[in-house]
Each structure stands twice: as C-alpha cells, then as structure tokens.
Design a protein around this nucleic acid. Structure first.
Lengths: 146, 146
DNA sequence: GGCATATAGTTGTTTATGCAACTAAACAAA
DNA sequence: TTTGTTTAGTTGCATAAACAACTATATGCC
C-alpha cells in the first residue's frame, strides 16, 4: 500500500495535530497553576532567547517558525510584560536586537522544569525508540513541506 | 535514559508541533490555489459532517477537539458562506443540528483529494511502518493528556 | 409542581496566526 | 549620486483559539 493511500479516517488527526495542541494546552494550564502569566507562544520566544540572548527579530522568526508580523507582536507583548527589550543594532539600523530582562531570566528554570514535566506526562508509556521514530517522521514532514 | 529526560533542545519542536502547522499551511495554500475560499478549520468541520450530517454543535466539539465557543463561531462563518444550516432540534430545543448545504456537498470530493495529495507530499519518503509508529505515539500523547 | 443542577449554545475579551501592504534602511550597479 | 532591489520590521484586516460569564432549556429530586 503506497504512503498516499492510508486510511482517510486517519487524515484528520494527522493534519490538525491534536497531540501537539493537547501538549500546548496542558503546558499552558501548568503555567497557570504555577501563577505564571505568560502564554506558551511567549514562552517559546523566551526559550530561544535563553539559548541565545540578543537575537534579531528575523532570527527569532527562523528559530520559532513564525512570520515577521507574529514575532513583531509577540515581542510587543513580551515588552509590555517587561520580559524583553528591543535594542536597535548599531551596525544595521534596520535591526532590533531582543534582550531578556532580569525578570525573564528568573523564569527560565521554573518554566523549563514545567515543560519537562509536561512532556514527561505526555510521553508516559512511550519508548525512546518510538519517540525517535516519531521525531524523524515529524522532521521529514516538515522538510518535505519547507 | 528515562523518557522524561530526552534532550531539552528537542522540547520545542514537540511542543509547538511545527510539522502539523506546516501541513495545515500547505493544505490551506493548496485550497487557495484551487480557488477554494474556505479555511482548514472550516474544512475540518465539514469533514466531520460529511461523515455524519446533522450532528449537533456539541458533537462537533467532541469530534473536532474544539470548545463550544470555537464551534459556535466556525458554524457562524460556515453559515455565512452558505455551507451549513443550523436546524433546531425538535426533541430538545437547546440543540442545533448542523446540516450541509448542496454547495458543501459539492466540495467534498475536491477537498478530500487535495487533502490526500497534501498528506502524500508531506509523507513522501516516510515508510508505512514509521507512519504507524508516529500515529501510535501521537495517539498515546493525546490519551495521556486527555 | 417547584427548585437545584446539568447541558447546549452564545457573547465578550485577550492572544495569536496568515496574508498583504507598507516604511525604512542597506546594498549593488551604473 | 541616483536608481533599483533586497532585507528588517510594522500595521491593517480576517479568522481562530482559550477562558469566563452568560441565557435558555432540560432533567432529577423532594
């Protein structure tokens, strides 16, 4: 049976990604229970800044797989929350470099722990081998459509 | 290595589901190229109605993994597009039964073909065995968080 | 019957996405 | 230097999601 003919009843789940939205919802809920008032989308931006502070908005677009307007607005909201600061680049005046504030730095440990816990809940009973294959498939799908 | 400790660098992709958003975007693009003016979210509602016409909004919530306000507004928009019709249930006056119009019925074949093609593009080079495992993992994740 | 509770659906608010159109700065070619 | 093109970021608009608060109907219990 060729790949493109697997059962149509299974189409929907694949396309809409109910698993990833379930993870996202749970993580959001776990943030809320810990009295963390950030969205998972905001967190995903912080996540990349924790890895490399001072990225440009364009770099954040590439890292987070979002378009430029999305990042503009996420940075707007993160700035309102005083979690990041836009700093104009001195070399290239078109560029904003995004820096974490001290408040944001303090969020790293707690939120990363919550994310790890959430993922552990999600993957309970799934073997590492299965996870590896699932990741490969998702990566391949992404590459195919890029 | 226990499941809950796999590399943090891989956290992000899992959580944000970049693969499923990539599929969604591609399907939307393919709809647009075929001059089909519906969103994939609207399509996902039609998809379930094609399987069983006349579902209640609550049934659509369960089938599409959305909450009630989301379905209310999707049905609003589908009604504006004259693709579905709300019909009050005679047995229970709280319930709206959602019926496809003739226009919507005509969309089924073409959009399902486009969805199959999109999925085929996405899964090019992925074996059926890998797909099976990926689906199992995603299902398990969903069940774990339900 | 009358009251409490559960269920179906709607509305308001905030946040986010996708797309198109736009501004401003950099760069390249002549 | 001027003209055209690319790149970085912003703004406007439509759609959608999550959550809370709400209305209306149904149901269960006394």
């Amino acid at each position: 049976m060729p790949n493109n003919q697997f059962k149509k009843g299974e189409l929907y789940s694949f396309i809409t990604g109910k698993a990833s939205t379930a993870i996202a919802r749970r993580l959001q809920k776990n943030f809320k229970q810990a009295n963390l008032d950030i969205t998972i989308e905001q967190w995903s931006v912080l996540y990349h800044l924790w890895k490399e502070d001072g990225m440009s908005q364009q770099q954040l677009c590439d890292s987070t797989f979002r378009d430029k307007p999305s990042i503009t607005r996420l940075v707007d909201n993160l700035e309102k929350l005083k979690l990041v600061k836009r700093v104009p680049s001195k070399e290239d005046r078109r560029i904003n470099l995004i820096y974490l504030t001290k408040e944001a730095e303090q969020l790293q440990e707690q939120t990363m722990d919550l994310a790890s816990q959430t993922l552990a809940e999600a993957l309970d009973g799934v073997t590492n081998g299965q996870i590896e294959i699932a990741k490969e498939v998702l990566q391949k799908v992404y590459d195919n459509l890029k």
